[in-house]
Nucleic acid binder design. Structure first.
Lengths: 238, 238
DNA sequence: CGAAGGCTTGAGGCTATTCAACCAGCGTGG
DNA sequence: CCACGCTGGTTGAATAGCCTCAAGCCTTCG
Protein backbone atom coordinates (compact mmCIF):
# COMPACT_ATOMS: atom_id res chain seq x y z
CA UNK A 1 0.00 0.00 0.00
CA UNK A 2 1.64 3.19 1.09
CA UNK A 3 4.19 4.27 3.63
CA UNK A 4 4.26 7.25 5.91
CA UNK A 5 7.58 8.92 6.14
CA UNK A 6 8.51 11.94 8.15
CA UNK A 7 12.20 11.86 7.47
CA UNK A 8 11.96 14.76 5.04
CA UNK A 9 9.78 17.28 6.85
CA UNK A 10 9.98 20.01 4.23
CA UNK A 11 7.98 22.82 5.81
CA UNK A 12 5.30 24.60 3.82
CA UNK A 13 7.19 27.83 4.41
CA UNK A 14 10.13 26.36 2.50
CA UNK A 15 8.11 24.65 -0.22
CA UNK A 16 8.26 25.91 -3.76
CA UNK A 17 4.68 24.80 -4.35
CA UNK A 18 3.36 26.92 -1.50
CA UNK A 19 1.82 29.47 -3.81
CA UNK A 20 -0.46 26.78 -5.24
CA UNK A 21 -1.85 25.06 -2.17
CA UNK A 22 -1.50 27.83 0.42
CA UNK A 23 -2.81 31.37 0.56
CA UNK A 24 -0.33 34.07 -0.42
CA UNK A 25 -1.03 36.64 2.25
CA UNK A 26 0.29 34.89 5.37
CA UNK A 27 2.51 36.62 7.90
CA UNK A 28 5.36 34.79 9.66
CA UNK A 29 3.30 33.88 12.66
CA UNK A 30 0.54 32.35 10.55
CA UNK A 31 3.11 30.59 8.39
CA UNK A 32 4.49 28.93 11.49
CA UNK A 33 1.02 27.66 12.34
CA UNK A 34 0.51 26.35 8.84
CA UNK A 35 3.81 24.49 9.02
CA UNK A 36 2.28 22.32 11.72
CA UNK A 37 -0.79 21.63 9.63
CA UNK A 38 0.97 19.11 7.43
CA UNK A 39 1.18 15.95 9.52
CA UNK A 40 3.83 14.25 7.50
CA UNK A 41 3.91 12.91 4.00
CA UNK A 42 2.72 9.81 2.28
CA UNK A 43 4.16 7.96 -0.67
CA UNK A 44 1.85 6.31 -3.17
CA UNK A 45 3.24 3.92 -5.74
CA UNK A 46 2.10 4.09 -9.35
CA UNK A 47 -1.24 2.36 -9.74
CA UNK A 48 -2.07 2.51 -6.03
CA UNK A 49 -4.92 4.53 -4.63
CA UNK A 50 -4.48 7.37 -2.17
CA UNK A 51 -8.09 6.98 -1.11
CA UNK A 52 -11.17 5.53 -2.62
CA UNK A 53 -14.87 6.15 -2.58
CA UNK A 54 -16.49 5.42 0.77
CA UNK A 55 -13.39 5.77 2.93
CA UNK A 56 -13.80 8.09 5.92
CA UNK A 57 -12.75 11.62 5.11
CA UNK A 58 -9.86 12.29 7.44
CA UNK A 59 -7.50 14.45 5.47
CA UNK A 60 -6.96 16.65 2.47
CA UNK A 61 -3.85 15.91 0.41
CA UNK A 62 -1.53 18.24 -1.44
CA UNK A 63 0.52 16.69 -4.20
CA UNK A 64 4.25 17.32 -3.87
CA UNK A 65 5.46 15.04 -6.64
CA UNK A 66 3.79 12.72 -9.12
CA UNK A 67 0.34 12.76 -10.64
CA UNK A 68 -3.10 11.32 -9.92
CA UNK A 69 -6.37 10.68 -11.61
CA UNK A 70 -9.65 11.08 -9.74
CA UNK A 71 -12.35 8.74 -10.89
CA UNK A 72 -15.40 6.71 -10.04
CA UNK A 73 -16.38 3.22 -11.01
CA UNK A 74 -20.07 2.65 -11.71
CA UNK A 75 -21.90 -0.52 -10.76
CA UNK A 76 -21.64 -1.62 -14.40
CA UNK A 77 -17.88 -1.38 -14.29
CA UNK A 78 -17.66 1.77 -16.35
CA UNK A 79 -14.83 3.95 -15.04
CA UNK A 80 -15.32 7.70 -15.34
CA UNK A 81 -12.24 9.88 -14.88
CA UNK A 82 -13.05 13.35 -13.56
CA UNK A 83 -9.66 14.87 -13.96
CA UNK A 84 -5.93 14.65 -13.52
CA UNK A 85 -4.03 16.26 -10.67
CA UNK A 86 -0.39 17.21 -10.58
CA UNK A 87 2.08 18.83 -8.16
CA UNK A 88 0.46 21.63 -6.20
CA UNK A 89 -3.08 20.35 -6.62
CA UNK A 90 -5.31 19.39 -3.71
CA UNK A 91 -7.05 16.03 -3.42
CA UNK A 92 -10.08 15.04 -1.38
CA UNK A 93 -12.29 18.12 -1.60
CA UNK A 94 -15.31 15.94 -2.26
CA UNK A 95 -15.17 14.58 1.27
CA UNK A 96 -16.73 17.53 3.07
CA UNK A 97 -20.32 16.67 2.12
CA UNK A 98 -20.79 13.33 3.74
CA UNK A 99 -17.61 12.73 5.71
CA UNK A 100 -16.56 10.15 3.16
CA UNK A 101 -14.55 10.49 0.00
CA UNK A 102 -16.82 10.29 -3.03
CA UNK A 103 -14.19 9.31 -5.56
CA UNK A 104 -11.00 7.33 -6.02
CA UNK A 105 -7.60 8.98 -6.33
CA UNK A 106 -5.13 6.76 -8.15
CA UNK A 107 -1.46 7.54 -8.68
CA UNK A 108 -0.42 7.62 -12.33
CA UNK A 109 3.23 7.66 -11.33
CA UNK A 110 5.03 7.23 -8.04
CA UNK A 111 3.88 10.14 -5.94
CA UNK A 112 4.37 11.94 -2.68
CA UNK A 113 1.62 13.90 -0.97
CA UNK A 114 1.36 16.14 2.09
CA UNK A 115 -1.26 14.98 4.56
CA UNK A 116 -3.47 17.68 6.07
CA UNK A 117 -5.87 16.26 8.65
CA UNK A 118 -9.35 17.75 8.37
CA UNK A 119 -9.62 18.52 12.05
CA UNK A 120 -6.45 20.60 12.08
CA UNK A 121 -7.53 22.23 8.86
CA UNK A 122 -10.84 23.27 10.38
CA UNK A 123 -9.22 24.53 13.56
CA UNK A 124 -6.62 26.49 11.70
CA UNK A 125 -9.21 27.91 9.32
CA UNK A 126 -10.94 29.45 12.30
CA UNK A 127 -7.72 31.10 13.41
CA UNK A 128 -6.58 32.21 9.97
CA UNK A 129 -9.42 33.62 7.86
CA UNK A 130 -7.08 33.81 4.89
CA UNK A 131 -6.76 30.04 4.99
CA UNK A 132 -10.51 29.57 5.08
CA UNK A 133 -10.95 31.90 2.13
CA UNK A 134 -8.23 30.12 0.24
CA UNK A 135 -9.96 26.80 0.70
CA UNK A 136 -13.14 28.43 -0.52
CA UNK A 137 -11.40 29.68 -3.65
CA UNK A 138 -9.90 26.27 -4.32
CA UNK A 139 -13.26 24.56 -4.05
CA UNK A 140 -14.87 27.20 -6.20
CA UNK A 141 -12.11 26.61 -8.76
CA UNK A 142 -12.85 22.91 -8.70
CA UNK A 143 -16.48 23.67 -9.52
CA UNK A 144 -15.50 25.90 -12.40
CA UNK A 145 -12.98 23.36 -13.64
CA UNK A 146 -15.56 20.60 -13.74
CA UNK A 147 -17.93 22.88 -15.58
CA UNK A 148 -15.40 23.36 -18.32
CA UNK A 149 -15.33 19.57 -18.63
CA UNK A 150 -19.11 19.54 -18.88
CA UNK A 151 -18.88 22.16 -21.60
CA UNK A 152 -16.46 19.92 -23.42
CA UNK A 153 -18.55 16.77 -23.07
CA UNK A 154 -21.73 18.58 -23.96
CA UNK A 155 -20.74 20.32 -27.11
CA UNK A 156 -17.47 19.21 -28.69
CA UNK A 157 -16.42 16.54 -31.18
CA UNK A 158 -13.60 14.11 -30.49
CA UNK A 159 -10.82 16.19 -32.07
CA UNK A 160 -11.95 19.34 -30.34
CA UNK A 161 -12.11 17.59 -27.00
CA UNK A 162 -8.59 16.32 -27.34
CA UNK A 163 -7.34 19.74 -28.43
CA UNK A 164 -8.98 21.38 -25.42
CA UNK A 165 -7.58 18.69 -23.17
CA UNK A 166 -4.02 19.15 -24.37
CA UNK A 167 -4.23 22.91 -24.08
CA UNK A 168 -5.65 22.74 -20.60
CA UNK A 169 -2.85 20.45 -19.53
CA UNK A 170 -0.08 22.59 -21.01
CA UNK A 171 -1.56 25.67 -19.36
CA UNK A 172 -1.34 24.02 -15.99
CA UNK A 173 2.18 22.81 -16.64
CA UNK A 174 3.15 26.32 -17.73
CA UNK A 175 1.96 27.71 -14.38
CA UNK A 176 4.42 25.30 -12.76
CA UNK A 177 7.26 26.50 -14.92
CA UNK A 178 7.25 23.83 -17.61
CA UNK A 179 7.31 24.43 -21.33
CA UNK A 180 4.00 25.24 -22.93
CA UNK A 181 5.11 23.53 -26.15
CA UNK A 182 6.22 20.18 -24.83
CA UNK A 183 4.13 17.79 -22.83
CA UNK A 184 4.67 14.34 -21.37
CA UNK A 185 1.40 12.61 -20.68
CA UNK A 186 1.36 10.58 -17.52
CA UNK A 187 -1.95 8.91 -18.34
CA UNK A 188 -2.97 6.21 -20.79
CA UNK A 189 -5.16 6.72 -23.86
CA UNK A 190 -7.83 4.89 -21.97
CA UNK A 191 -7.71 7.37 -19.10
CA UNK A 192 -7.84 10.29 -21.49
CA UNK A 193 -10.77 8.70 -23.25
CA UNK A 194 -12.64 8.16 -20.01
CA UNK A 195 -12.11 11.78 -19.03
CA UNK A 196 -13.23 13.07 -22.42
CA UNK A 197 -16.14 10.70 -22.82
CA UNK A 198 -14.52 8.77 -25.68
CA UNK A 199 -13.24 5.28 -26.36
CA UNK A 200 -9.48 4.80 -26.41
CA UNK A 201 -9.60 4.01 -30.11
CA UNK A 202 -11.30 7.30 -30.78
CA UNK A 203 -8.65 9.10 -28.76
CA UNK A 204 -5.96 7.39 -30.78
CA UNK A 205 -7.63 8.41 -34.03
CA UNK A 206 -8.08 11.97 -32.80
CA UNK A 207 -4.37 12.14 -32.03
CA UNK A 208 -3.73 10.94 -35.55
CA UNK A 209 -5.97 13.59 -37.05
CA UNK A 210 -4.30 16.39 -35.11
CA UNK A 211 -0.90 15.12 -36.22
CA UNK A 212 -2.06 14.93 -39.86
CA UNK A 213 -3.17 18.54 -39.61
CA UNK A 214 0.24 19.52 -38.34
CA UNK A 215 -1.06 20.86 -35.06
CA UNK A 216 0.91 18.52 -32.84
CA UNK A 217 3.67 15.93 -33.00
CA UNK A 218 3.29 12.76 -31.01
CA UNK A 219 5.81 10.19 -29.94
CA UNK A 220 4.10 7.75 -27.61
CA UNK A 221 3.29 9.84 -24.56
CA UNK A 222 5.42 12.76 -25.60
CA UNK A 223 3.45 15.54 -27.28
CA UNK A 224 4.74 18.70 -28.90
CA UNK A 225 2.43 21.56 -29.79
CA UNK A 226 3.40 22.71 -33.29
CA UNK A 227 0.61 25.18 -33.97
CA UNK A 228 -0.87 26.50 -30.76
CA UNK A 229 -3.05 29.06 -32.54
CA UNK A 230 -4.75 26.50 -34.74
CA UNK A 231 -5.05 24.12 -31.81
CA UNK A 232 -6.83 26.80 -29.78
CA UNK A 233 -9.08 27.53 -32.70
CA UNK A 234 -9.99 23.88 -32.83
CA UNK A 235 -10.70 23.83 -29.11
CA UNK A 236 -13.06 26.76 -29.68
CA UNK A 237 -11.29 28.88 -27.11
CA UNK A 238 -9.10 31.05 -29.28
CA UNK B 1 -34.89 43.65 -14.74
CA UNK B 2 -35.45 42.95 -11.09
CA UNK B 3 -36.73 44.76 -8.06
CA UNK B 4 -35.46 44.79 -4.52
CA UNK B 5 -38.18 44.56 -1.99
CA UNK B 6 -37.83 44.54 1.71
CA UNK B 7 -41.49 44.74 2.53
CA UNK B 8 -41.58 41.05 3.42
CA UNK B 9 -38.51 40.59 5.58
CA UNK B 10 -39.05 36.93 6.39
CA UNK B 11 -36.18 36.16 8.75
CA UNK B 12 -34.07 33.05 8.20
CA UNK B 13 -35.06 31.93 11.67
CA UNK B 14 -38.67 31.83 10.51
CA UNK B 15 -38.03 30.37 7.06
CA UNK B 16 -39.17 26.87 6.28
CA UNK B 17 -36.24 26.43 3.89
CA UNK B 18 -33.69 27.18 6.59
CA UNK B 19 -32.59 23.58 6.87
CA UNK B 20 -31.45 23.66 3.25
CA UNK B 21 -29.40 26.85 3.04
CA UNK B 22 -28.37 27.27 6.66
CA UNK B 23 -26.53 25.04 9.10
CA UNK B 24 -28.67 23.09 11.54
CA UNK B 25 -26.68 23.54 14.69
CA UNK B 26 -27.16 27.25 15.38
CA UNK B 27 -28.06 28.61 18.80
CA UNK B 28 -30.39 31.57 19.24
CA UNK B 29 -27.62 34.11 19.40
CA UNK B 30 -26.06 32.85 16.17
CA UNK B 31 -29.46 32.67 14.54
CA UNK B 32 -29.96 36.34 15.31
CA UNK B 33 -26.69 37.16 13.59
CA UNK B 34 -27.64 35.10 10.57
CA UNK B 35 -30.95 36.92 10.32
CA UNK B 36 -29.01 40.06 9.51
CA UNK B 37 -27.01 38.32 6.82
CA UNK B 38 -29.79 38.39 4.29
CA UNK B 39 -29.83 41.96 2.97
CA UNK B 40 -33.26 41.84 1.45
CA UNK B 41 -34.74 39.92 -1.39
CA UNK B 42 -34.75 40.21 -5.12
CA UNK B 43 -37.38 39.25 -7.63
CA UNK B 44 -36.39 37.86 -10.99
CA UNK B 45 -38.95 37.50 -13.75
CA UNK B 46 -39.11 34.37 -15.86
CA UNK B 47 -36.45 34.49 -18.56
CA UNK B 48 -34.41 37.17 -16.81
CA UNK B 49 -30.95 36.56 -15.41
CA UNK B 50 -30.05 36.88 -11.76
CA UNK B 51 -26.40 37.31 -12.73
CA UNK B 52 -24.32 36.43 -15.70
CA UNK B 53 -20.77 35.43 -16.43
CA UNK B 54 -18.29 38.21 -15.81
CA UNK B 55 -20.36 40.25 -13.37
CA UNK B 56 -18.57 41.15 -10.14
CA UNK B 57 -19.19 38.60 -7.42
CA UNK B 58 -20.95 40.56 -4.70
CA UNK B 59 -23.43 38.13 -3.24
CA UNK B 60 -24.58 34.58 -2.90
CA UNK B 61 -28.27 33.95 -3.51
CA UNK B 62 -30.65 31.52 -1.85
CA UNK B 63 -33.75 30.65 -3.82
CA UNK B 64 -36.98 31.22 -1.91
CA UNK B 65 -39.42 30.59 -4.72
CA UNK B 66 -39.13 29.73 -8.39
CA UNK B 67 -36.44 27.90 -10.32
CA UNK B 68 -33.27 28.71 -12.22
CA UNK B 69 -30.92 27.17 -14.70
CA UNK B 70 -27.18 27.82 -14.52
CA UNK B 71 -25.46 27.82 -17.86
CA UNK B 72 -22.71 29.15 -20.03
CA UNK B 73 -22.75 30.30 -23.60
CA UNK B 74 -19.67 29.45 -25.66
CA UNK B 75 -18.21 31.76 -28.26
CA UNK B 76 -19.85 29.58 -30.93
CA UNK B 77 -23.26 30.17 -29.45
CA UNK B 78 -23.61 26.72 -27.94
CA UNK B 79 -25.39 26.94 -24.60
CA UNK B 80 -24.41 24.42 -21.97
CA UNK B 81 -26.72 24.03 -18.98
CA UNK B 82 -24.92 22.86 -15.83
CA UNK B 83 -27.94 22.25 -13.72
CA UNK B 84 -31.30 23.39 -12.42
CA UNK B 85 -31.82 25.02 -9.04
CA UNK B 86 -35.00 25.17 -7.02
CA UNK B 87 -36.17 26.54 -3.67
CA UNK B 88 -33.53 26.13 -0.98
CA UNK B 89 -30.61 25.93 -3.40
CA UNK B 90 -27.73 28.39 -3.38
CA UNK B 91 -26.60 30.29 -6.47
CA UNK B 92 -23.28 31.96 -7.19
CA UNK B 93 -20.77 29.57 -5.63
CA UNK B 94 -18.57 29.81 -8.71
CA UNK B 95 -17.75 33.41 -7.91
CA UNK B 96 -15.19 32.80 -5.17
CA UNK B 97 -12.34 31.93 -7.54
CA UNK B 98 -11.94 35.11 -9.49
CA UNK B 99 -14.31 37.57 -7.86
CA UNK B 100 -16.59 37.27 -10.87
CA UNK B 101 -19.46 34.95 -11.56
CA UNK B 102 -18.41 32.29 -14.06
CA UNK B 103 -21.87 31.33 -15.27
CA UNK B 104 -25.30 32.71 -15.98
CA UNK B 105 -28.28 32.11 -13.71
CA UNK B 106 -31.56 32.43 -15.57
CA UNK B 107 -35.01 32.22 -14.01
CA UNK B 108 -37.19 29.48 -15.49
CA UNK B 109 -40.21 30.90 -13.72
CA UNK B 110 -40.83 34.06 -11.74
CA UNK B 111 -38.57 33.78 -8.74
CA UNK B 112 -37.60 35.34 -5.48
CA UNK B 113 -34.15 35.04 -3.95
CA UNK B 114 -32.49 36.05 -0.67
CA UNK B 115 -29.41 38.22 -1.18
CA UNK B 116 -26.40 37.39 0.97
CA UNK B 117 -23.55 39.84 0.39
CA UNK B 118 -20.18 38.14 0.25
CA UNK B 119 -18.55 40.51 2.67
CA UNK B 120 -21.11 39.85 5.38
CA UNK B 121 -20.93 36.16 4.62
CA UNK B 122 -17.17 36.14 5.12
CA UNK B 123 -17.36 38.19 8.32
CA UNK B 124 -20.05 36.01 9.77
CA UNK B 125 -18.23 32.84 8.78
CA UNK B 126 -15.34 33.97 10.94
CA UNK B 127 -17.67 34.42 13.91
CA UNK B 128 -19.68 31.26 13.36
CA UNK B 129 -17.53 28.26 12.43
CA UNK B 130 -20.65 26.22 11.81
CA UNK B 131 -21.57 28.61 9.01
CA UNK B 132 -18.15 28.30 7.43
CA UNK B 133 -18.34 24.53 7.58
CA UNK B 134 -21.81 24.57 6.13
CA UNK B 135 -20.63 26.61 3.18
CA UNK B 136 -17.83 24.12 2.74
CA UNK B 137 -20.27 21.24 2.68
CA UNK B 138 -22.48 23.00 0.17
CA UNK B 139 -19.57 23.63 -2.18
CA UNK B 140 -18.36 20.10 -1.76
CA UNK B 141 -21.87 18.91 -2.60
CA UNK B 142 -21.81 21.03 -5.74
CA UNK B 143 -18.60 19.31 -6.80
CA UNK B 144 -20.10 15.88 -6.20
CA UNK B 145 -23.28 16.87 -8.00
CA UNK B 146 -21.39 17.97 -11.08
CA UNK B 147 -19.44 14.76 -11.04
CA UNK B 148 -22.63 12.78 -11.22
CA UNK B 149 -23.46 14.77 -14.34
CA UNK B 150 -20.05 13.93 -15.77
CA UNK B 151 -20.72 10.29 -15.04
CA UNK B 152 -23.97 10.61 -16.92
CA UNK B 153 -22.46 12.38 -19.93
CA UNK B 154 -19.51 10.04 -20.04
CA UNK B 155 -21.20 6.71 -19.98
CA UNK B 156 -24.94 6.72 -20.54
CA UNK B 157 -27.22 6.56 -23.57
CA UNK B 158 -30.04 9.01 -24.17
CA UNK B 159 -32.78 7.02 -22.42
CA UNK B 160 -30.59 6.32 -19.42
CA UNK B 161 -29.63 9.96 -19.13
CA UNK B 162 -33.22 11.06 -19.13
CA UNK B 163 -34.16 8.41 -16.58
CA UNK B 164 -31.35 9.53 -14.28
CA UNK B 165 -32.33 13.14 -14.77
CA UNK B 166 -35.96 12.55 -13.84
CA UNK B 167 -35.02 10.51 -10.80
CA UNK B 168 -32.56 13.09 -9.60
CA UNK B 169 -35.18 15.80 -9.92
CA UNK B 170 -37.88 13.86 -8.08
CA UNK B 171 -35.44 13.08 -5.29
CA UNK B 172 -34.77 16.74 -4.77
CA UNK B 173 -38.45 17.56 -4.88
CA UNK B 174 -39.13 14.81 -2.36
CA UNK B 175 -36.65 16.41 0.08
CA UNK B 176 -38.78 19.54 -0.18
CA UNK B 177 -41.93 17.64 0.60
CA UNK B 178 -43.31 17.12 -2.89
CA UNK B 179 -44.51 13.85 -4.33
CA UNK B 180 -41.88 11.52 -5.63
CA UNK B 181 -44.27 10.20 -8.28
CA UNK B 182 -45.44 13.42 -9.86
CA UNK B 183 -43.22 16.03 -11.40
CA UNK B 184 -43.80 19.31 -13.18
CA UNK B 185 -40.84 20.27 -15.29
CA UNK B 186 -40.08 23.96 -15.26
CA UNK B 187 -37.60 23.73 -18.11
CA UNK B 188 -37.92 23.20 -21.86
CA UNK B 189 -36.85 20.09 -23.77
CA UNK B 190 -34.02 22.19 -25.12
CA UNK B 191 -32.76 23.00 -21.63
CA UNK B 192 -32.97 19.36 -20.61
CA UNK B 193 -31.10 18.41 -23.75
CA UNK B 194 -28.38 20.92 -23.13
CA UNK B 195 -27.91 19.66 -19.58
CA UNK B 196 -27.81 16.02 -20.70
CA UNK B 197 -25.64 16.59 -23.74
CA UNK B 198 -28.44 15.78 -26.19
CA UNK B 199 -30.45 17.54 -28.88
CA UNK B 200 -34.00 18.45 -28.04
CA UNK B 201 -35.29 15.98 -30.62
CA UNK B 202 -33.39 13.21 -28.92
CA UNK B 203 -34.87 14.21 -25.57
CA UNK B 204 -38.32 14.11 -27.09
CA UNK B 205 -37.70 10.65 -28.51
CA UNK B 206 -36.28 9.45 -25.21
CA UNK B 207 -39.43 10.62 -23.46
CA UNK B 208 -41.41 8.68 -26.01
CA UNK B 209 -39.40 5.51 -25.42
CA UNK B 210 -39.82 5.70 -21.66
CA UNK B 211 -43.56 6.17 -22.12
CA UNK B 212 -43.74 3.21 -24.53
CA UNK B 213 -42.03 1.08 -21.93
CA UNK B 214 -44.59 2.12 -19.37
CA UNK B 215 -42.04 3.67 -17.04
CA UNK B 216 -43.50 7.15 -17.07
CA UNK B 217 -46.56 9.04 -18.30
CA UNK B 218 -46.06 12.42 -19.89
CA UNK B 219 -48.47 15.25 -20.54
CA UNK B 220 -46.51 18.21 -21.81
CA UNK B 221 -44.39 19.21 -18.84
CA UNK B 222 -46.21 17.06 -16.38
CA UNK B 223 -44.48 13.74 -15.71
CA UNK B 224 -45.68 10.83 -13.64
CA UNK B 225 -43.37 8.03 -12.60
CA UNK B 226 -45.25 4.77 -13.19
CA UNK B 227 -42.48 2.27 -12.52
CA UNK B 228 -39.81 3.74 -10.30
CA UNK B 229 -37.95 0.45 -9.94
CA UNK B 230 -37.57 -0.08 -13.67
CA UNK B 231 -36.68 3.57 -14.11
CA UNK B 232 -33.90 3.27 -11.55
CA UNK B 233 -32.68 0.13 -13.24
CA UNK B 234 -32.50 2.04 -16.51
CA UNK B 235 -30.57 4.85 -14.84
CA UNK B 236 -28.11 2.23 -13.62
CA UNK B 237 -28.54 3.29 -10.03
CA UNK B 238 -30.90 0.66 -8.74
C1' DC C 1 11.98 -16.14 -25.14
C1' DG C 2 6.94 -15.66 -24.38
C1' DA C 3 3.34 -13.04 -22.29
C1' DA C 4 1.03 -8.89 -21.33
C1' DG C 5 -0.10 -4.14 -21.67
C1' DG C 6 -0.48 -0.03 -24.39
C1' DC C 7 -1.34 1.75 -28.78
C1' DT C 8 -2.69 1.91 -33.71
C1' DT C 9 -5.50 0.79 -37.59
C1' DG C 10 -9.42 -1.19 -40.22
C1' DA C 11 -14.33 -2.61 -41.14
C1' DG C 12 -19.04 -2.49 -39.96
C1' DG C 13 -22.91 -1.23 -37.14
C1' DC C 14 -25.53 1.72 -34.21
C1' DT C 15 -26.83 5.90 -31.86
C1' DA C 16 -27.65 10.43 -31.96
C1' DT C 17 -27.58 14.45 -35.03
C1' DT C 18 -29.30 17.10 -38.69
C1' DC C 19 -32.77 18.80 -41.53
C1' DA C 20 -37.38 19.00 -42.32
C1' DA C 21 -42.27 18.85 -41.91
C1' DC C 22 -45.99 19.16 -38.93
C1' DC C 23 -49.04 19.99 -34.81
C1' DA C 24 -50.83 22.39 -30.65
C1' DG C 25 -51.27 26.30 -27.80
C1' DC C 26 -51.03 31.25 -27.20
C1' DG C 27 -50.96 35.97 -27.72
C1' DT C 28 -51.53 39.72 -31.16
C1' DG C 29 -53.84 42.48 -34.19
C1' DG C 30 -57.00 43.17 -37.81
C1' DC D 1 -64.19 36.50 -34.12
C1' DC D 2 -60.53 34.40 -36.95
C1' DA D 3 -56.09 34.78 -39.26
C1' DC D 4 -51.48 35.07 -38.16
C1' DG D 5 -47.02 34.31 -36.38
C1' DC D 6 -44.40 32.46 -32.70
C1' DT D 7 -42.79 29.21 -29.39
C1' DG D 8 -42.40 24.57 -27.87
C1' DG D 9 -42.93 19.97 -28.93
C1' DT D 10 -43.27 15.64 -31.80
C1' DT D 11 -42.10 12.77 -35.64
C1' DG D 12 -39.69 11.03 -39.92
C1' DA D 13 -35.68 10.16 -43.06
C1' DA D 14 -30.96 10.47 -44.11
C1' DT D 15 -26.36 11.16 -42.46
C1' DA D 16 -22.28 11.54 -39.65
C1' DG D 17 -19.65 10.37 -35.85
C1' DC D 18 -18.41 7.32 -32.58
C1' DC D 19 -18.41 2.61 -30.80
C1' DT D 20 -17.52 -2.22 -31.20
C1' DC D 21 -14.97 -5.95 -32.58
C1' DA D 22 -10.85 -7.58 -34.39
C1' DA D 23 -6.17 -7.86 -35.85
C1' DG D 24 -1.57 -6.51 -35.50
C1' DC D 25 2.61 -3.85 -33.77
C1' DC D 26 5.80 -2.35 -30.29
C1' DT D 27 7.70 -2.18 -25.79
C1' DT D 28 8.32 -3.97 -21.30
C1' DC D 29 9.06 -7.37 -18.07
C1' DG D 30 9.36 -11.81 -15.98
Amino acid sequence: MSVRDTQHPIACSACNLRQLCMPAELDNEQMALVDHLVQGKRRVARGQSLFHSGMPFEALFAIRTGAFKTCMRSAQGHEQVFGFQIAGDLLGLDGFVSGQYCSDAIALEDAQVCVMPVQQLQDLSEQIPALARHLQRIMSAEIVQERSLLLLLGGMRAEERLAAFLLHLTERMAVRGFSSQELVLCMSRQDIGSCLGLQLETVSRAFGKLVDQGLIAVDKRHVRICNAVALKAKAQLA
